[in-house]
Structure formats: C-alpha cells, structure tokens
Design a protein around this nucleic acid. Sequence first.
DNA 1: TTAATTTTAATGTGATCACAATTAAAGAAA
DNA 2: TTTCTTTAATTGTGATCACATTAAAATTAA
Lengths: 247, 247
Amino acid sequence: MNKEPDFNLNDLKFDQEETAQEWVYRALRFAIMSGQLQPSQALTIRQIAGILKVSAMPVREALKRLTAEGALTIKANRRIIVPTLVPARLAELIELRVELESFAAIRAMPYLDEVRINQLETINDQQNDAFEKRDFHGIILGNQNFHRTLYTAHPHSVTMPMIEQLWLQIGPLHRLSVAKLPEHYTHDRHCDIIHSLKHHNPFGLKSAIEADIRESIGFLTESDLLTNYGDNLPLPKPGYVKSLKHI
Amino acid sequence: MNKEPDFNLNDLKFDQEETAQEWVYRALRFAIMSGQLQPSQALTIRQIAGILKVSAMPVREALKRLTAEGALTIKANRRIIVPTLVPARLAELIELRVELESFAAIRAMPYLDEVRINQLETINDQQNDAFEKRDFHGIILGNQNFHRTLYTAHPHSVTMPMIEQLWLQIGPLHRLSVAKLPEHYTHDRHCDIIHSLKHHNPFGLKSAIEADIRESIGFLTESDLLTNYGDNLPLPKPGYVKSLKHI
DNA sequence: TTAATTTTAATGTGATCACAATTAAAGAAA
DNA sequence: TTTCTTTAATTGTGATCACATTAAAATTAA
C-alpha cells in the first residue's frame, strides 16, 4: 500500500474542458511554483495518482512534461525528484532571470498603455495586502502575476515561457525566500518599475527589475541552501515592513 | 493501414543503455534540429511507432517531452504538428538568441583556456569542410557544436538548455536558411569569436556572436516564411564562398 | 461538376497488466 | 546491537486494448 502523502495537491479544481493530464500538470506545477514541494523530495507516479484519484497514465504524462521543463529531475535510477540547487547553480539562475526579465520588460515597454499600467498597480496593491496578511501563496502568486502581466504585454513574447521555466526551477526555494523576505525587502521595487514605465525610462526599468529580482531571492546564502529549505519557517508578521508603497 | 512516412528517422542507432523513449526522443529531436521536418507537418504516434519499430508508449512520452520543450505544438484538436513561425515570432526568437547566447558566451569566457579554444578551431575547420562539401547536416551540426562547446565551458551553464530550446524552435527553418546562406555569409564570424576569446575582449565577443546569429538566420524574410520552407532547394555549390578563413 | 450527407478510418487519451530493476523490510549470523 | 543475506514490496517502463473525437473517404443529391 502507498504511504500517506506528506503534501497536498488538491488546490486546483478540475476543469471539464481539459484533459486529466493537463489537470495533473497544473496541480503539480502550482505546487512546485508556490514552494509546496521540498527539494530532493521524490514524486512517484502511483502516489500522485492516488492523491488526485486518477490512473497512472495522466500522471506519467504530466511528470514527463514537468521534467522536460526542468521543474523535476530524473535521477540515474529513474526516480523522479524535486531538484536540489547547489549555490553556483542558483546564482546562475538568478543572473539569467535578471537577463531575461530585463530583456522581456524592455521589449514589452512600447506596448504598456495606461490600461495595462493600471492593471499592474492593482496587482501590486493586492500583493501588498497579501504581504500584510501573511498570505504565503498570495505573495508569491501576486509577484508572478505582476511580472507576467508586464512581460506579456508584448504580443509575441517568446521569452515568457522561458522565464516561467526559471521560476519553476527556483520555485522550491520560495518558501525559504519569502520567510526571509522582511530582512531584505525594504523598498517596493514594483513601484519603481511602474514609475519607470510611466516615464518611459528603459534604464530605470532595467535596474528596477534587476533590484526586484535580487532582493526577492538573490540574498539566499550557501548555508540557506544546505541546511534547510524553509519548511516550517514562520512567515513575517504583518506590519513588519512599514510601508511598501512610496515614491 | 498507416500511410508511408515521408520522412526518415533512422539516422540514430539505438543505445542499449537508454530506454526506448529516450531513443525515440533523440531521433525526433535530431530530425527537427537538422531541419528534416517541415513546419505544419503532423506527427502521429502510431506512424512514428511504425517507423521506429516500437510500441506507441515510448513515442507518446517522447512527443510529450518535445512538446514541453517547444519543439512541437499541440493544436486545439490535440494533433501534434511541427510548429510554423510567423515572422514576428521568428524575429523575437532571433533577438532572444542574441541575448541568451551573448550572455552565455560572456559568462563562459573566463573558463576558455587554450585547450578549449583549440577545440573550437578544430570544430570550425570541420564545419568549413562541410560547407565546401555541401554537407547539409555537417554545416548545421558543426555550427551547433561550435556554439555548444563555447557556452558549456562554464561549469554551471543553466543557459545552455534554454539556448538549445531556441535552436529546436528555429530548427524547421534551417534547411531554408542554409540554402540561402551563401548570399549572406561572406565573413567567418566564428573566427571573430575565437579572436575575441584569445584577446579577452568581451565586447568583440558579444558583437561577433550577434553578427554570427543574424547572418546565419536573421536574413529570412516574411516571404521566405510564407511561400516555402526550403525543401528541395539546392545547396550552395562548393567554392561559392571563396574563403571562410581569414582574419 | 459541385455540395451536402453518411460512412469509414485514424487519432490522442486513458486504463490495465506484465516485467525487470531498485528499494525497503525482515531475518539470520556474528 | 551490528552486519550481512534474503525476501517482499515498490518503482518506472513498455505493451495492449477500449473509447470518444476528429479527419478522411465514399455516397448521395442537386
């Protein structure tokens, strides 16, 4: 008999339009992206199939897809695990995020009209609310939503899927990074981004994007990666950061 | 009964160590990368299974993986096809290639010792030989080999898989671009790259990479994409480009 | 010939079983 | 208790079948 699972995947409802494998994929992807799965954790086909009450077939396809996207790793013995990150690799991922997201932002800039910028402001307000409420998922998802809305303003964004791939690979560290966030997040870079967009300032935009990325994840140290992965870490108390809205 | 296939996949031998799905994946990937599959061409599970003499199962997994990597596309009716490129998307892909490959090259620069540079020179010679011999595959594979050897000098290259993903997406156009190559390829940018590496010149490296990419694919016009995909186009005659080695 | 309709074939998805390889558990020997 | 051996359970992979949906072919009607 399968062991009881130590993680939850039932956050997402099944949409009648989609196939079973798409649903399984969404559920697993969401779990990884929002830091619910621990690095080095093994994922087995039958266990996930049992949790989601589907057969093994759609789970196989979903795991294959996530593996191809770098969200999961196949070990030499063919076991599928959530990948661990050595510090040098994390550093590379962050540099690449800076590179790609700056690129995407600059390219999207001409397409950001007033409507889109208002969207960004709304999303940012929601994210700040989530921060005050210690809403773990809200912070992460709000941040991703903000960046995605920015980059996809460009109608032919080839870059966005690649950026999401990077988010997927960093995903398992998000629980840790958010827990340590108040120590480093003293300035709302999203406001800087919006400000630069309004004033058509590509250099300001680029540096704001870079600062936002580095301050949200770049501070993780080697010992952070080696000693723990942020499970059971307390989330920041509301009001720790006085104000996230200035400028 | 299945129709006779109009493409060949038997270029790669089956390695006893690998699984069937890995072999199928390699075969399909190679075919796409080297421009053997036409855009909008449909790939069916049973047809490929018939060609490669395997069951449907490993083909399903391989197609799922390639789809996740952007090498194939699933249409609304769930049919799997080789994706077509609208001009705007190709332009984005090229810009992203320039961005990522410049980044990877600069990052790899400190790791390029004399041994590695000699490797690059050898590969470049081989590629020029392939050009003289009108060796279609040799040109494409040699070029990829050159760039891959350069970028993977960095021990923690997170970028390389993403660059390969871009190559995969442009792959179906390679037959066309190589056929039109002599009209635009009048200067061996690979020599420029090597020269910049030897003199530790990051700016020269970046501009050489950019020029190499644009001159190898960036010249494709809208009508090139819409009217044909380069099948049955004659390859350049040997000696058309007098000398690929100068500087 | 052309257009609309029916019939047939083919396709991706999902389920289930078999199998070899790996891992975990149990037992034996020190 | 500790170490080694043996046994049992679990794993990913592959094969085969059923099924609903879609595409293609055949048929009919104009």
